[in-house]
Amino acid sequence: MDVSLWSAFAGGVIVFFSPCILPIVPFYLSYMAGSGMAALNEAGELPADIRRRAVISAVMFSLGIITVFVLLGAAAFSVSQAFRAYQDEFRLAAAAIIALMGLHFLGVIRLGFLNRQFQMEAGDTANMSVLGSYVVGLAFAAGWTPCVGGVLTAVVMTASFEETAMQGLGLLLVFGVGLTLPFVVAAVFIKPFMRFVSRFRRHLPKVEKAMGLLLIVFAVLLVTNRVNEIAYWLLETFPAFSAI
């Protein structure tokens, strides 16, 4: 079992349920489906054509995000290989950056550049094409939200230390799937999802704090070079994982 892959997937899922992403998902779905928020909120089932368009758009939006993440993984691995003689220094610098982001999410410090995020202008989206949803996904990933940036940095740094380029790319691919799969599920079950968002909103600050704590723990593991020990501990504690 490659624990880093499971960690990357879990990181993507956690980011989806973060304060930066979850509250804006209904808006993104309505924007790309070409329908207003009123149509998504009204009682009853959505028309089949709107539901189908929302699902297809969500898939293309997700592919756009994953494309950017995979390219980031390739770039990070290339840089890491170019400076392989300085890998220890590279690892410590990565730990420092991740720790700063963790402190930001815990509210200990506030980093202004992490508050930068991609926003879409409201307008007529009834004629948005499938390709348009893919482009919006590219723009979203390139303009990242602060919650995406923190965990994404940790995953990119992990990818840069992998033994092969394919392992690094796979790590970012899995992270992208973890982040975007709930988006597609939300499009399929959009009515229950809208109700879930309204109930879960009060827990968003807790998710942000949990993200910060996880980033701090990961930074400590990088500094002490003990990331692999987590994998061994999991296998010893939960032998069933070895069959996965």
Rank of each mutant, 00 (worst) to 15 (best):
G73L: 00
V148L: 08
P192V: 04
N115W: 03
M37Y: 02
P19T: 06
R226P: 00
A122Y: 10
F183L: 07
T67V: 01
R51K: 15
P23V: 08
A74S: 07
L172G: 07
H104N: 06
G112Q: 13
R195C: 08
I109N: 15
Y134S: 04
G102M: 01
Q81T: 07
P19M: 02
F77V: 04
M60N: 11
N115E: 14
E163G: 04
I97D: 09
E208T: 13
M128D: 05
R201F: 11
L29G: 14
T158C: 01
T180I: 06
E236P: 03
T237M: 09
M157D: 04
E45A: 15
L215F: 01
F241D: 12
G11F: 02
N225A: 14
N41Q: 12
M128S: 11
M166N: 15
L138G: 01
G149H: 02
E229F: 00
M157A: 15
S57H: 02
T158Y: 03
S7M: 08
G36R: 04
I98D: 11
R201A: 14
T145G: 15
I14P: 00
L5G: 04
A74H: 05
A94D: 12
A8E: 02
R51M: 09
G107I: 02
S62H: 05
L214R: 03
M32V: 05
R195Q: 15
T224R: 09
G112S: 13
V13G: 11
F241T: 11
A186S: 14
G137W: 00
G102V: 01
R52T: 09
L63K: 07
S18R: 14
V156C: 11
L22S: 10
S35C: 15
G73M: 00
P182E: 00
L215A: 08
L103S: 01
A240G: 03
G12R: 00
V59A: 14
F193K: 09
V135K: 06
Y86Q: 08
G168W: 04
I14M: 13
V70E: 09
S62P: 14
V13M: 11
A240F: 15
R201H: 09
Q87T: 10
E229M: 05
F113V: 06
I50M: 12
F238N: 01
V59F: 13
G112W: 03
R84H: 05
M166T: 11
R110G: 07
A219G: 10
L72P: 01
A43C: 03
